[in-house]
Amino acid sequence: MTEAESPRTPDGRPFRDQPRWRRDFPIDVAEDAYVARRDFAKYVVLVSGAFATGQVSMLLRSALARRAPAPPRLRIASVVDVPVGGAIAFRYPADGDPCLLIRRREGEFLAYGSECTHLMCAVLPEVAKGRLRCPCHQGYFDLSTGRPIAGPPRRALPTVTLDVRDGEIYATGVRLESQ
């Protein structure tokens, strides 16, 4: 092999001065780096495709959610079932959506989705302190609005709209923060 044909070496010294093991495996560093970068570029584009897929799936899901029928009107409990300062659990609109119905004062009922908006732990009402607490990472939500007031959560709890009629409490819909 002539000097011109010999592979380029990492330290720039002539090929014949390289250690024996490198002479036995004559890899051209520039060629090797080029192939490695080119393959890395392929993976970058693959990840870019995954990001775009995630974005498009979000678009499709929000389009489907817009077409979905409004949540049904559902009887949760009677007024007498919920003590003042207490709360009961219910599921709305689907069976997989745990919620809390809270009676703050005599005639004041509030209902929120009870999955923390941080990592979905169950939140606990602390009615006397005017807040809901998530025990997992000490996240706190305002009892009046469901908005996060401390800890890791950044989004409000979904609000369940209520209708209290003839001593019965009905859930009529779910409202997210920005709606």
């Binding site: 990001f51 974005q55 929000s62 989004r155 409000a156 409202r175 997210l176 923060e177 709606q179």
Partner: peptide, 14 residues
């Protein structure tokens, strides 16, 4: 884009 949109979307802003 993905993280910002996910955050807004989960908060109800589509």
């Amino acid at each position: 884009l993905l993280t910002a949109t996910t955050n807004a979307w989960l908060g109800g802003d589509d």
